[in-house]
């Protein structure tokens, strides 16, 4: 037993779930009372995650501008690209919770209003973190390299994020294509939603390429009619139901909207979505 192990045996140390270095837990009065969550990431890894505390759009949950502009050096995975000025009114700083009347919209959501059913059907979405370079790596490790334990980092926090939602009738996740599921061995969204009573009511109708390799218009076009209700779910009455969809990343919102549309056409009154990461700029091409 070396000195390191001795410290870990009888002290407030943890091993970082991401980088595996041992670290001391952050101490506080809440911590001493056992009121804090188990600290899973070491302070450096934790600090690289940018929590979304205030949002500038009450529909898609786009973070307030300062948050994305203020941080320099790596907040945007593309690095050199300028942050999206003009999408959202910089003076808007709403708390990152769901609200009854989402009427403060960013440019993106205004654009959605012109397409299809979205003129009078809201899709409120909230995310935990800004999708920055670090989070991109964490999610890549989780999703593509099968480090399924990392879902613990987010599953509890996602549950907390939905506290402001009120009553929900159905919680579901975006299904993976057979092919992808076979590749990965698990549905990343399903594990993230492990704290919810998830019902699998959605199905993929056609196989399409990975969403992450398309641009906005491509994504929207490709997703036309991509989801449908499963046979069992078609039997249930969706009239005036409130539905929550859990997924990992929100980029343009196209996937979530495609899924939400299925419920709205069946008569659902509200569809909501939560994700771990909210992309705010141009994305880097994945390897």
């Amino acid at each position: 037993m070396n000195r390191q192990d001795m410290r870990e045996g009888l002290s407030h140390t943890n091993r970082c779930l991401y980088c595996d270095t041992p670290f001391y837990e952050e101490i506080s009065w809440r911590w001493a009372f056992g009121l804090t969550d188990n600290q899973l990431l070491c302070p450096p890894c934790q600090n690289k995650l940018e929590s979304i505390t205030t949002i500038g759009c009450s529909m898609c949950g786009r973070p307030s501008v300062e948050k994305t502009m203020g941080k320099t050096g790596g907040s945007d995975p593309s690095g050199s690209d300028p942050p999206e000025i003009g999408y959202v009114d910089p003076s808007v700083r709403l708390p990152n919770t769901f609200i009854k009347h989402p009427d403060v919209l960013c440019l993106d959501c205004e654009r959605w209003k012109d397409t299809g059913i979205w003129a009078d059907h809201p899709l409120q979405h909230r995310a935990l973190y800004v999708y920055n370079a670090h989070l991109q790596e964490v999610i890549a490790r989780y999703k593509y390299r099968g480090d399924a334990k990392l879902s613990e980092l987010f599953s509890g926090k996602l549950k907390k994020l939905t506290r402001s939602l009120g009553k929900i009738d159905t919680v579901t996740v975006i299904p993976l294509q057979e092919e992808r599921l076979w590749e990965r061995g698990f549905n990343q969204a399903e594990l993230l939603a492990e704290r919810f009573p998830v019902q699998h009511v959605l199905e993929r109708t056609s196989s399409s390429d990975k969403q992450s390799k398309r641009d906005r218009s491509g994504r929207i076009a490709a997703l036309k009619g991509a989801f449908s209700l499963s046979t069992a779910a078609r039997q249930t009455d969706w009239q005036d139901k409130r539905v929550l969809i859990v997924d990992d990343i929100y980029t343009t919102g196209a996937t979530l909207r495609a899924a939400a549309e299925v419920f709205y056409t069946e008569g659902a009154s509200h569809v909501f979505a939560v994700t771990v990461a909210r992309a705010t700029g141009k994305m880097k091409r994945e390897p």
Binding site: R3, R7, S11, H12, Y24, I27
Partner: peptide, 8 residues
């Protein structure tokens, strides 16, 4: 070169 928490 041993990082020990002040609480310990």
């Amino acid at each position: 070169k041993l990082k020990i928490s002040i609480l310990d």
